[in-house]
Design a protein around this nucleic acid. Structure first.
Lengths: 385, 385
DNA sequence: ATCATTAGTCCAATGGTGAAAATAATAGGA
DNA sequence: TCCTATTATTTTCACCATTGGACTAATGAT
């Protein structure tokens, strides 16, 4: 447990106040005081300090209260703090510059040669940042850091990539290297974990305290928000739903086990299965074949969705979240998937009262979720949140 | 996020100091200061207050330090605080009185008529407490409360039993009723959650921050310790591993799904399956039959253990704990099960470095785990931990 | 205009914590 | 034995975040 002294107390209170403003801005001091239970004095002081630092502004507007003096609303000083969010994938790299609200000010997405080596990737990242900053005349002094989300297992604390099949990396001190190169502070995390963070703060799961985000496309994975925090697990590999068994008599996975979820629901596996029937290039063709009533395609995709539902059911049983978010290339490109999975699941969850206010969500930030999450991660690091 | 003021700060610091003493007693003030980073002044004050309140004592002994003044060790004042822990099950009720260290001072276990109704159960609990207290001349003023662990879904906050198949209860305000009856504060929780708490504080998972406890016997379930806290989930039903699917083509579960874990590994299901071969009364006979090489028994139990391993694998993938604890009637009565499951699992966990220091544990508190956990729960409530 | 009501600021009091100094205890020499 | 270096604990005191209450500001209702 952490040591509590006055400094820590102050920091915590600043966190809560800042957090509330980020979520509910513009908002009055009085409202913050009411919500937090802090005295108006304290709220005033904190807001004052943050204003002094340039992060907040008193907006001209006043709240339309029923009675009494109107409150002056506090808002975020956009542009006062910027951060760079990067999504790094096998085949592409997305980059965006975010403001305090998590808005993407400007962005860029470019392909990444599949076999690009580490040094080259680092160079390219540096160049991409340089270009974006210059092209959009970004004030460098406002940029507080870089966040990177990537597929694989990441040591968020140290900013090292432990292992990434997709990028072909193993024990890469990414944060360290990129900090040397760019001079900015660098935070690194798994792509789904930052995506979950983004959806939690700005997207589908605002206000939720226990959410599971599933991502499926080229791979399949998940990330958990527990008690409002990203849950990382003992070795930073929590959420590995892809190697969860959904059918003990199923197909062999490359990991040596039978019936791992990732054997069924990833684009790669769907395509490879489809190609045993007839030559097929893209996942769209598979869905078209299904639409056209071709048996094999119906079976292939139904099976995948069935197994996905099983995995979700298992997850919900274990974690009892208040919401599940579906995201990734597959649900993005085939929105119908969402309802199909939801329908399969809802017949599963056991007892009515236990569902509580459980909800399925579709990712709201989809394509830019990882970039936004990475950028927010970096901001949070800066603010010691 | 919580409001931080001086009171809260003080409370938190007291919690950490008290927590350390509970785990590492006897220990010196200086050592506590070093561990927590607090100033010696603060530690001294807190220890002083807790001593004043009678919870701590200075033991006469001094530490064998290398050089300098020896430290006076602080220990728990046993008997200063007592609590009553109760395990309530379909067929029996266990009760114990615990001291601060979590030692069971005295205890009692008695059968519970299967169809006993709520009022009768309440009366019996009251009587059992009365008897135990009187018989062992327990100082009533020292008892700070009662903790109860039971199978089913419990609203730990309000102390209500939402649903318990085994006890036949639904929406029973247990804490409220029992407080009326006994006058003591009452805390209620799911049996496996308190058992996990007990193992975390006093048993196999001391020092672990992320543990999963599995319990299997008449039912099967699990409980999670995340970041050192019992994880309860949105509707208090986290850990429902019994309705996790382990084989989509498996047997129908009473919940309507196919292949739930509880269809395979519970004593009840094993017996019912066994009886389709030949009349069998007890689970021992099944294991004996297996020992004797009878095919059906080998298959039945192997299948159960295989599925158990799958469920554990799934759990470990999702939650990446540093340890898993096996507990319950089955592993207690057939210790070999433990190694068999472990062997099946260890071939599963994917990548060596990710295992970290992962360990399998056998429950150390076995039969009294729930009683101890319940008692500790009650104490923690009292100390506002 | 006056009053009731709400927002926000100013000021003094409270009280937990930390730093430093004082005191205590101890081992190892000289 | 006495002195010194070292570590443990207590004492003293200053610091400062928070709070409560007094006060000012603003606004709608009467």
């Amino acid at each position: 447990m952490k040591k509590h002294d006055q400094d820590y107390m102050k920091l915590q209170n600043r966190r809560t106040v800042f957090g509330i403003i980020k979520q509910q801005h513009p908002i009055s001091r009085a409202a913050i005081a009411k919500q937090t239970g802090m005295s108006p004095t304290t709220v005033s002081r904190i807001v004052g300090e943050l204003t002094e630092l340039g992060y907040l502004v008193e907006s001209e507007q006043v709240a339309a209260a029923g009675l009494g003096r109107k409150s002056t609303l506090i808002g975020l000083a956009d542009g006062s703090v910027l951060s760079i969010g990067i999504e790094l994938d096998r085949h592409f790299m997305s980059i965006g510059i975010l403001d305090l609200q998590g808005n993407v000010i400007c962005s860029d997405k470019r392909v990444r040669p599949a076999e690009e080596d580490l040094e080259e990737t680092l160079r390219r990242i540096g160049a991409a940042i340089e270009e974006l900053v210059r092209h959009h005349a970004i004030d460098r002094t406002r940029v507080v850091g870089i966040g990177i989300g990537l597929p694989g297992i990441v040591n968020n604390d140290k900013g090292g990539v432990v292992f990434s099949v997709q990028l072909g990396w193993k024990n890469v001190p990414l944060a360290e290297r990129l900090k040397e190169l760019t001079g900015y502070e660098v935070a690194v995390d798994n792509e789904l974990k930052v995506r979950a963070l983004a959806e939690h703060l700005k997207g589908a799961a605002i206000g939720s305290r226990r959410t599971a985000l599933l991502g499926f496309g080229n791979g399949v994975g998940s990330a958990l928000i527990l008690e409002g925090e990203v849950y990382r697990g003992d070795m930073n590999s929590a959420g590995e739903i892809g190697h969860t068994t959904v059918d003990p008599n199923g197909m062999m996975c490359e990991c040596g086990k039978a019936g791992c979820l990732q054997t069924y629901i990833t684009i790669r596996s769907l395509l490879s299965e489809a190609n045993q029937i007839r030559p097929i290039q893209t996942i769209e063709e598979v869905f078209e074949a299904r639409q056209a009533g071709e048996r094999w395609a119906i079976h292939l995709i139904d099976r995948a969705l069935d197994y996905m539902a099983i995995a979700i059911n298992n997850l919900v049983c274990m974690y009892n979240p208040d919401s599940v978010i579906l995201s990734g290339e597959l649900p993005d490109r085939f929105p119908g998937i969402h309802e199909e999975i939801e329908a399969r699941c809802s017949s599963h969850f056991v007892w009515e009262p236990l569902r509580g206010s459980f909800r399925f969500h579709h990712s709201e930030l989809s394509e830019w979720g990882v970039v936004i999450g990475s950028g927010l991660l970096s901001q949070n690091r800066f603010f010691q949140l």
